[in-house]
Amino acid sequence: MTKKFSVKGLTNDGKWGQRLTKLAIYVLLLDFGFVYIYPIMYMILVSLMPTSDLINPTIQWVPTYLDFENFKQVFSTLEYPVTFTNTVILAGVASILQTLSCALAGYGLAKFRVPLKKLWIGMLILVFVIPTSLTLVPQYVLFNSYGMVGTELSIWLPAAMGQGVKSSLFVLIFMQGFQYPKAYDEAAQIDGAGPVRTFFRISIPMVVPTIILSLLLSFVWYWNETSRSGLYLDGKINTLPLQLEKFDKLFGAAYPASQGSSLNRLNERIQMAATLLTVGPLMILYLLLQRKFVEGVEASGITGE
């Protein structure tokens, strides 16, 4: 009798203990989550505050009223419609080209007895590891001699040949993705399909999640990239982050501080509005497609060997 009782007591204790641990874990996760979201919250709220709220020490988070005047100023300073379109085209095309070239290379390495395979894989890692600044100037000289500086080609060509932003990573995940059983390909070959047809009909459908991941990540990474585009595009084509980089100068030129009104003072709310307009489209994209991003990373085997 006593024995039974104590056992019951024990399990009860265990249950409570487990619940407490669970609770503690959720509390910790929420804490970390808050740290993650804090800069974004700050950015959005400050960008919406009227200037008087910024200097009022009693106001920490909630704006007394919403003020969108700064967004109008930022919108015109960034030349938003043009810049936005530039960024989407630049990143969109680069992302498609990069995905295609990396899929082809990954397929070649995964499916065929390519000579010197180990060397090529070593090269992939080398390309991933070397800092961009090492190839930045020589590439610039190269593009300059072909008159490609100031055009999108200087960004698109390396992407089309597997040497773009983090291309090696994508080649490696495609390599991983294409390592499905050979029997599928053999079946297609017996039915008379050549390597090209096997690639499009059998292999591509096998790696759809990887393709989506590659398209999405390439798109956001090209969107956010500034060291190559800052140099190669030569100020002739501007992307949103590039405009943000020189925002203080642009704003000063558009709204000279010397000319009177306090509206022309470059303050946090204007800076945060500019930042919000730069990352906003990416935030919306992520809100809509976050499943594809995260599950893609897991399914793609970035996380594996």
Partner: peptide, 17 residues
């Protein structure tokens, strides 16, 4: 066939890296 699939990347490796 493998080299054919790999060729864009190989040329890119040479030219751009």
């Amino acid at each position: 066939s493998g080299l054919a699939f790999l060729s864009p990347w190989l040329i890119g490796l040479l030219v751009f890296t």
